[in-house]
Amino acid sequence: MNEMSFRTEDPWRPLKRYTNARIALGRAGSSLPTKEVLSLSLAHARARDAVLRELDLYGMGRTLSSLGIDVVPVTSACRDKEEYLQRPDLGRRLSEGSRETLGVLAGARTANGDFDIVLIVADGLSSLAVERQAKPFLEAYLPLAAGLKVGPLCLANYGRVALSDEIGSILGSRLVVILIGERPGLSSPDSLGAYLTFAPRVGTTDERRNCISNIRPEGLSPAKAAVKLDYLVRESLARSMSGISLKDEQREMLPDR
């Protein structure tokens, strides 16, 4: 290593133990040391990759089928990622083809009565989150849903949270849960969110949903998130509602993560 250094270290480095914020980075002149410039670039690159990565519908479909559940691939009205990022309205609606597919499924279903729950897995803003967290989460959750009439698992491309409203209403499910990639942070490019809506229909507003966020091993573990979801699903079905009123009581009954 070179004896000469053009870098000024910050002697308050011990403060780093109190926060994950990028403090005491040191400087080269007024700028960041090279190591820190690269570290920030890497974190941003990972977040960008997570946003732009296309969901491997075929591979993911096979992975999820291995859990012993019927998987139906669907897609929103968006044609590509670029449109998805700019047109939230299209990401909330099914493509015509997907609407027809689900309509056929719904017609075949009526003999057995309504579904209690339909699960959806959607890429959202992080396909990486879906690839990493969807399987472990469902492995933990599906056994807990025993006794419920569970509809086919919909695997959705270019989906927003509200896409679950149209899917749930076509399939005639009492309740719908969408597992979706969250907007990546620099330290969390692979965080999954779960949104629950009772009596889903197009035009449902967000205060009628319940959300479990930050599902990933470093945040809320998939196993713990599954227990939390199971609680919410049963409460929601028992009381025929979802949203703010359900959340308020949950706060008292369930210790927060």
């Binding site: 994950n20 400087r27 007024s30 960041l32 920030l40 620099l186």
Partner: peptide, 24 residues
């Protein structure tokens, strides 16, 4: 924002370094 990375709001802004830099 420390290192331009807001760890609560999950977005990037300008940093203490950036401010120092532009002042200089």
């Amino acid at each position: 924002v420390p290192g331009a990375d807001d760890i609560m709001l999950n977005y990037q802004s300008t940093s203490f370094h950036d401010a120092l830099n532009i002042r200089r």
